[in-house]
Design a protein around this nucleic acid. Structure first.
Lengths: 245, 245
DNA sequence: CGTTATTTGTGCGTATGTATT
DNA sequence: AAATACATACGCACAAATAAC
């Protein structure tokens, strides 16, 4: 419905983006103070409240910290605590030495829960199920759900057809077709018993305790693009993360 | 204005805490809409802006999402205790609303495996065992091992004595005393059955499938400083991470 | 040592726009 | 078409922490 002709974005987002890229460019390294709220308000012709809104986002992203009376500073991950190393690229590179075998091809279906988690206003989603194999050992069962608007770009991909086997990742297949790039992935990791289907696909007992990883990908407009529900065999997979300063 | 109220906190935080705990209690499960901004403003005698500030925090924590014209909804995450342990603020904030109960105080012991993982040239390590409690529910059992050189800085800490209970984190206790700052933590996450001791401490059955998180901290000289082995109850805890580009 | 200016934090009020019902 | 509910944006006042004088 909405045409792509929407270059306009909130002022606070413009401000936040500018500051983010300046920070990334190293403009405020080594404890250099960022501009004050008043300065930015003048510079952008916005109110102090609007600038605060931008800073609030940057703070919750953990890239700046603020001290009353002193100012705002880019967070130096080198001084105190740790920062996470994992990135979305790491998730994409998962494919290099593993194979994706399609268990059930990409097709339209009704799934209220998946639709709700993707925050769709219909119950219709597109789903595909596959497993990943490493050294001929299947170690993970994944179900991916996509909104219709996203799925239509990959409906004809041979990698997602019945019985296909490739070294792709779904997000890697999708990325080139999306008008806005994937910007974040929210993951939650817990333990869940293998369902009968999962058990059959990864060759374990039903009810076996699995490492369950839910991933929700979104683009830089905060639109949800993909929901991936994975069951990893803990005997063959350990989730590793390095937090660095 | 109120001079007598020392532990006073901002209204928006009070509102956010109330909503967080209601959400955790399942009050807004299954798509039940949260109160509107106006309703909460009346209920708390605050302005709509203050309520919005609270909601903004909840949104950036990922526990609610908002839809213009429809309302605010709890993000479906099985109402587990959700904590984001990818960034450092999250690691520190862990202490704000959870309690650390010492199960076994910090003391010298011989543990070949721990010593080996810390790459010590002796078998002597210092170990402490504790659990963490949230809303009177124990949700994790942790054993921490330290090299002697590190442990001596906190041997006399009251927080690590027999029967102590505090809101500290061990890394928070250690940090000020170390001559070289913690530079990285390598984590691995998998599934493991509860041992008898773990089961008793977190009140579950022996053999219950737990989320096991091993963390190995090191400083910028690549010296290993702390080994933490945690068993999380998956019913009450989900490990959350956000990956960004 | 206070005093003052600066800077962020909290909280209120208003107005207007947009999406949903 | 109207009412509801959230989004953006402006304004103001005062508090609290910091730094410089």
């Amino acid at each position: 419905m909405t045409a792509a002709e929407r270059p306009s974005q909130p002022v606070y987002r413009t401000v936040a983006n500018k500051l983010r890229s300046d920070i990334a460019a190293g403009t405020y390294k080594n404890g250099v103070r960022l501009p004050t709220e008043s300065e930015l308000a003048s510079e952008f012709g916005a109110s102090r409240q609007t600038i605060r809104r931008a800073f609030h986002d940057l703070v919750s992203e953990g890239i700046v910290h603020r001290v009353p009376g002193r100012g705002t500073f880019a967070t130096e991950h080198n001084s105190r605590y740790l920062r996470q190393l994992g990135s979305i690229e790491d998730l994409m590179n998962l494919s290099t030495d593993t194979t994706m075998d399609i268990v059930s091809p990409l097709r339209r279906q009704v799934n209220i829960e998946a639709a709700s988690r993707l925050r769709l206003d219909t119950d219709v989603v597109y789903g595909v199920t596959f497993r990943r194999v490493h050294d001929s050992v299947p170690f993970v069962h994944t179900r991916v759900f996509l909104p219709e608007a996203v799925a239509r770009h990959v409906l004809d991909s041979p990698e997602l057809m019945e019985g296909a086997s490739s070294t792709s990742t779904l997000i890697g297949l999708l990325e080139p077709h999306l008008d806005a790039p994937i910007a974040r992935a929210d993951q939650s990791i817990t333990v869940a018993p293998a369902t009968a289907e999962v058990a059959e696909v990864v060759n374990c007992d039903t009810g076996h305790a699995m490492l369950r990883v839910d991933r929700l990908y979104s683009n830089d407009r905060d639109e949800l693009c993909e929901l991936a529900l994975s069951y990893f065999l803990p005997e063959h997979y350990t989730y590793r993360i390095t937090l660095r300063r």
